[in-house]
């Protein structure tokens, strides 16, 4: 690890330990350099199935020039620092297992970050921890409870809706409709859900996917 990499890591680690999201300790942090952090974060949000970010401070907001949360799903805090000079693109992931190269483990998700070349901004994304992960998702077809899916294990599930087939994907404690026979694909565009109040609905297939385990019987909205 050269000096720059170490510096990036040190700043990132400092960011992670100096920060708590709603009283819970953050689970992991992703540090990378980028020439266009706003675009990189947007792409990351898309690949990750939605990250809601909260800019840490005025300076970060200024650098990012974004005016609101984008995406849903995992909570994340973002720190952005302008460096004195562009630094070769680099990515480091610090999780419960230690320091990893995310390109090896999460090829699709993070590989695009290393293709940038040099980056003038150091971006640290600190992920919210999932302390009590939701136990399972419930799939209702035609108003009847058809299937229960354990969210603790990643996997692919195929279900037969009223109109055709849907493919569900479980990844990292969340679930989404990866594919659907319907035309508008609103269900697919919903992306990953992980909180008990969220639902994925496919009207043509008459499918509703929701998360169990909050202890709530209903949500008024």
């Amino acid at each position: 690890m050269n000096r720059r990499e170490f510096l990036a890591l040190a700043i990132g680690a400092l960011g992670a330990s100096a920060f708590k999201i709603k009283g819970k300790n953050a689970r992991g942090s992703l540090i990378f350099t980028s020439s266009n952090p706003a675009e990189a974060l947007k792409r990351l949000a898309h690949e990750e199935g939605g990250i809601k970010y909260i800019p840490a401070d005025e300076e970060t907001r200024r650098l990012l020039r974004l005016s609101g949360p984008w995406g849903r799903g995992k909570g994340a805090l973002v720190f952005v620092r302008e460096l004195d000079a562009p630094v070769p693109a680099n990515i480091t992931y610090t999780g419960p297992g230690g320091i990893e190269d995310p390109r090896r483990k999460y090829k699709k998700t993070y590989a695009f970050l290393s293709r940038e070349g040099k980056g003038k901004y150091l971006v640290t994304v600190v992920f919210e921890s999932r302390s009590k992960g939701p136990a399972r998702a419930v799939v209702e077809i035609n108003g009847r409870r058809a299937k229960e899916i354990d969210l603790k294990e990643d996997g692919i599930y195929r279900i037969e809706g009223a109109q055709g087939e849907m493919v569900l994907e479980v990844k990292g404690g969340r679930i989404r409709a990866a594919e659907s026979s319907c035309e508008k694909k609103i269900c697919v565009h919903t992306g990953f859900i992980s909180s008990p109040h969220e639902k994925i609905v496919c009207i043509p297939n008459r499918v509703v996917i929701s998360i169990e385990g909050s202890g709530l019987d209903g949500i008024s909205f």
């Binding site: 809601k52 969220e198 909050s214 202890g215 019987d217 209903g218 949500i219 008024s220 909205f221």
Partner: peptide, 18 residues
């Protein structure tokens, strides 16, 4: 009792449980 949450109007999550 039945537990009903009120949705947070400004973002994800529940703002109160009844």
């Amino acid at each position: 009792p039945w537990r009903i949450g009120i949705k947070n109007p400004s973002g994800p999550g529940i703002i109160k449980v009844l």
